[in-house]
């Protein structure tokens, strides 16, 4: 097991290196350097532009640029264009809100995806199953911001679900429990909209995995020895749903965090997604580029946790 974890850690460190290269080399994509004013602004003299290029070390050879930018990020020398605060602390202060939202979204994706997927696998081939898979694709095809707008237009006028921020106004000194319940309440609507696609994807994945297991030899054996179909399904086939349940953590995270940029913006939720949106509007390229790196690193961490968890559940994986 220790061997497996060490191997995964080694691969992860290679990946984090590639991730950092990809995110920082994006800076050189901008024609004329990543300045926030646009090429044609007459007020921007060549001197200012040159200063800006220096800031990103664009006057250095490319491999030096990479190391200098990485050093600047972690030492806080890479500053936001907007308020001159270190980019890294601007990003990390959004971490709690982002974690709450995404943990909620991933939990309900996994729970409802599992229930739905198992139900669909049990009813495979029926009309109900056909309708449910159409429903799943409908959820995947829904543009998240469109759903959010529709809900804002319709539901919110009648129900009291909070649509802004992480906290209710007017509560001055809430108890710890109250504060967190209130936070959670503010997560429900954006988190649920965010998770719609994830629930659907997860249900398809679980359905396919369980159905595939139903073709295995040990299922035929279980049937041959006269076990009732219920036992065959729930005790023998369903165990296989553990794999999509765990690997789902890793595969759902990128889509959820990607979608959170739009959903957090609509609901004024102060997470990393909203930070990305602000960075685009303010042409705050240091923040935008660093955000890509931090988010990808977080997802890598999520994948690592999922891998280790999976190896705990299924010993066969450790030997691969």
């Amino acid at each position: 097991m220790l061997n497996f974890i060490l191997r995964r850690l080694a691969i992860s460190s290679v990946l984090i290196f590639i991730i950092s290269i990809i995110s920082f080399l994006m800076i050189i994509l901008a024609p004329g350097g990543p300045n926030p004013w646009g090429e044609l602004n007459p007020k921007i003299t060549p001197q200012v532009k040159e200063m800006f290029r220096k800031k990103f070390h664009l006057d250095r050879p490319i491999h030096e640029q990479y190391f200098l930018n990485m050093r600047d990020l972690f030492t806080g020398r890479l500053k936001s264009i907007k308020d001159e605060r270190p980019v890294i602390s601007r990003i990390l202060e959004r971490l709690p809100a982002t974690l709450t939202l995404n943990l909620y979204a991933i939990s309900i994706s996994l729970i409802f995806g599992l229930l739905w997927g198992v139900w669909a696998a049990r009813h495979a081939g029926t009309t109900a199953d056909m309708l449910s898979s159409m429903g799943a694709f409908a959820l995947i095809a829904l543009p998240g911001f469109w759903v959010a707008y529709l809900i804002l237009i319709g539901l919110v006028n009648f129900a009291g679900v909070p649509v802004l921020g992480t906290q209710s106004y007017g509560i001055e000194f809430p108890s710890f429990a109250n504060l967190w319940l209130d936070r959670l309440w503010h997560v429900v609507l954006p988190g649920t909209i965010l998770a719609l696609g994830g629930i659907a994807v997860q249900s398809r994945y679980i359905r396919a995995t369980v159905l595939e297991a139903m073709n295995e030899d040990y299922i035929r054996t279980a049937r041959a020895k006269g076990l009732p179909e219920e036992t065959v399904f729930y005790k023998h086939a369903l165990r296989n749903a553990v794999r999509p349940l765990i690997t789902g953590i890793g595969s759902l995270l990128p889509a959820l965090i990607g979608g959170s940029l739009i959903i957090e913006t609509i609901f004024a939720y102060p997470g990393m997604g909203r930070l990305g949106y602000e960075a685009v509007l303010e042409r705050d390229y240091p923040t935008l580029v660093a955000l890509n790196f931090v988010v990808a690193a977080l997802i890598l961490l999520g994948n690592l946790i999922a891998d280790v968890l999976y190896a705990v559940v299924d010993p066969r994986v450790r030997l691969e």
Partner: peptide
Amino acid sequence: MRIVDALLCFPSFFLILTAVALLG
């Protein structure tokens, strides 16, 4: 495949958005 793995860690929407923001 390691490059693919690394790319899959990025939320593709973030990466696309950043590239479009930088390129116009």
